[in-house]
Design a protein around this nucleic acid. Structure first.
Length: 671
DNA sequence: CGGCGTACG
DNA sequence: CGTA
DNA sequence: GCCG
């Protein structure tokens, strides 16, 4: 069913290239137009000898270079990083860009109000147009109806109709972005006929063009808020919380102040769906750092033995990458138990009694106590193999198995991967603009790869992921996480007033920087929730804030007798980009996960998505071992009679399982 | 020696 | 297999 | 790799 809007948008590096696409006719370009196809074929066979592979690689690389494009700079293969708690130093945490400089120059179009259709524009283009609009016109308005001129990169009527009602479009000049640029350059409105965006609208566009004679502006002043591309966002510099305090968002019951006509009383959100006020403190004395369950321990973000834990985690990651999942699990547990140990470890005796510390790991700790390091970890970390596998599996969609396969093929760098997956120089250039890719009914990865066959080498999905990596590798500062929450909430509020949300994930556990943003939503009225996820994603997508949808699922309720209610959640895994109107706009794309839960399972969803992974795992384990209950993010079920429990608050869920209350900031059971 | 969290695409 |  |  109409997945048309689900199409993926590939947006890249708008910065310096955006000018280039100005006059060009809007045109969708397939990612997979590969004159390079043949070249891939040579690589499709797994069974080629390795040396042969490497030769192929070399040939490709040479070819690549001969094209004269040095495929954009890559962040140096992260030597691994993260020092102490204050180990940012990333360029990512730069302050929000100062708002555009107010020029006092004469406006080229002082009486013209424009409406900018963001669809099909890349971020750079959007922000450029908004800036032009702000500086050189009367302003950009929020509703097409209020504008004199509509600016769009869309060329097809059907497509435009999704964003602007046709009958309104017929009363405006509808032009391409080039019109605004050129008009600004010329210091006056140019004839719109030359820039008409959609042929069907040529006549009306000419008729309503603000060139030559000055028509009265149609944009009502009543819409002052929208007239200048919003400054509201910066109003609230997020007094939100101290770094380690978890933050939940309240539904802003004050939605649209102008519309209060209906007897639809803005019914207050039920207390229990909001975070407890005052927050519930953790009784550390009741927790037990010796417990086998992470959910019974207090695990701080940074522990007294952080250096040791980091060494062990290197080994853990290595085991994971090498496919030794079980071994990795043991290291994970060891890390976890040490993370909760409240003192600096000075002697082996302190450690020997801890669970999950066996022979092997005791030995490693002993070495660490003696020498301050663990040789095995150092060796691993210094190895090309480890560094490369880490790098490869940092790409979304590439896990340990694929990483090893690629490594065995002789690939070593992202550049190699790009060649292998057929990212071409022209693609790189293309990435500055919008590229549409059909959402293909692609077979899942586990069905390809089964030895021989096509391996899905030219897999456009992986290419997209490669292109995104540079951005997604960057950490997200807390303040930006909060802004993302606000921005998304604002859109949701327009869609369905009265929603409640909690930003979960590492952010909620107090991390200063996050790798992604997870938000759990609900609405007091359960019937309002169904389909909301898709609707929100669609809206964000139309607004240009969601550029990719990597996964989208609705809930199947308790249908098949198979497994009961599994997934009474809707979730969307997306790529988000801050709108240009936000003071936090940087153009860096971020992973954003949206989870919609009916109110009954809201708090279990929040618990589940708050993590950490080990904490979550052990909650499940605890629920099973001690209570014969099954816990997951969509509910708590008693195993013998399948009775479901729906805790009304987060604390109630802990009570139900006989667990001491543990604040999110004490749930950092993983490194 | 079996089990290690669990579900989904 | 990869992701949450 | 560790536990029961």
């Amino acid at each position: 069913m109409a997945e048309s809007w689900t199409s993926l948008l590939v947006v890249r590096k708008p910065a310096h290239l955006k000018r280039m696409l100005s006059g060009r006719p809007a045109k969708a370009l397939a990612v997979n137009t590969g004159p390079r196809r043949q070249l891939h074929l040579a690589l499709h066979h797994d069974d080629l000898r390795l040396t042969q592979q490497q030769q192929q690689q070399r040939v490709l690389l040479q070819h690549y270079r001969s094209l004269g494009h040095m495929p954009f700079k890559r962040p140096a293969p992260v030597p691994h990083q993260g020092t102490e708690s204050g180990g940012e130093s990333e360029s990512s945490s730069r302050p929000p860009p100062a708002k555009q400089q107010k020029t006092s120059m004469q406006k080229a179009l002082p009486d013209t109000t424009v409406y900018i259709v963001q669809a099909k524009l890349d971020v750079g283009g959007i922000s450029e147009l908004f800036e032009l609009a702000e500086h050189h016109t009367k302003g950009a308005c929020r509703n097409a109806m209020d504008a004199d001129v509509i600016i769009t990169a869309i060329a097809m009527r059907r497509r435009l109709e999704r964003h602007v009602p046709w009958d309104i479009a017929e009363t405006k000049a509808v032009v391409t972005p080039a019109w605004l640029r050129d008009s600004v350059d010329h210091g006056r409105a140019l004839p719109c006929g030359d820039y008409v965006a959609i042929q069907d609208l040529l006549e009306t566009t000419v008729e309503h063009c603000p060139d030559c004679n000055c028509k009265p502006c149609a944009c009502s002043d009543g819409d002052s808020e929208a007239a200048t591309p919003r400054f509201e966002a910066k109003q609230l510099p997020s007094p939100l919380s101290s770094p380690s305090t978890p933050v939940k968002q309240r539904a802003m019951s004050t939605s649209t102040k102008k519309e209060e006509k209906k007897p639809v009383v803005p019914q207050p959100v039920p207390e229990h769906l909001l975070p407890p006020d005052p927050p519930i403190p953790t009784n550390l004395a009741k927790l037990d750092y010796m417990s086998r369950y992470a959910c019974q321990r207090a695990s701080p973000l940074v522990c007294p033995n952080q250096a040791l834990v980091r060494e062990l985690d290197i080994i853990r990651r290595s085991r994971d990458l090498e496919g030794e999942a079980r071994s990795a699990l043991s290291y994970e547990r060891a890390v976890s138990i040490i993370k909760a140990y409240p003192h600096e470890i000075r002697s082996l005796k302190q450690v020997e009694k801890l669970p999950f510390i066996g022979v092997k790991i005791t030995g490693l700790i002993e070495e660490f106590l003696d020498t301050g390091k663990i040789t095995e970890a150092q060796t691993i970390n210094a190895s090309e193999r480890f560094q490369t596998l880490s790098l490869f599996s940092s790409i979304y969609g590439i896990g340990p198995s694929t990483a090893i396969r690629l490594y065995n093929l002789g690939l070593r760098s992202l550049n190699d991967l790009e060649v292998y997956y057929g990212v071409e120089p022209e693609d790189v250039a293309l990435q500055s603009q919008i590229v549409e890719v059909e959402e293909k009914p692609r077979k899942p990865a586990w069905q390809r790869g089964q030895h021989k066959g096509d391996e899905g080498l030219g897999d456009s999905w992986t290419r997209v992921a490669l292109g995104l990596r540079e951005d997604l590798a960057k950490k997200i500062p807390r303040a930006e996480v909060e802004e993302m929450g606000r921005v998304v909430m604002r859109e949701l509020e327009e869609l369905e007033p009265g929603c409640v949300s909690t930003i979960v994930g590492g952010y909620r556990r107090g991390k200063m920087e996050s790798n992604d943003v997870d938000i759990v939503f609900t609405h007091p009225d359960p019937s309002k929730v169904k389909g909301l996820c898709k609707r929100l994603v669609r809206k964000l997508h139309e607004r240009g804030m969601v550029t990719h949808v990597m996964h989208l699922s609705g809930f199947h309720a308790h249908n098949a007798l198979r497994t009961h209610h599994w997934d009474s959640l809707e979730k969307a895994l997306t790529v988000f980009i801050m709108p240009p109107s936000s003071p936090f706009h940087t153009g860096v794309r971020r992973r954003l996960d949206l989870i919609f839960a009916v109110p009954d399972v809201y708090w279990t969803a929040v618990i589940g998505w708050t993590g950490s992974i080990m904490f979550q795992r052990d909650i499940r384990q605890w629920a099973k071992d001690k209570h014969g209950m099954k816990f997951d993010s969509s509910g708590i079920t008693r195993r013998y009679d399948s009775k479901e429990f729906f805790p009304k608050t987060e604390k109630e869920a802990f009570d139900l399982l006989g667990l001491e209350w543990v604040e999110p900031k004490w749930r950092n059971a993983d490194l």
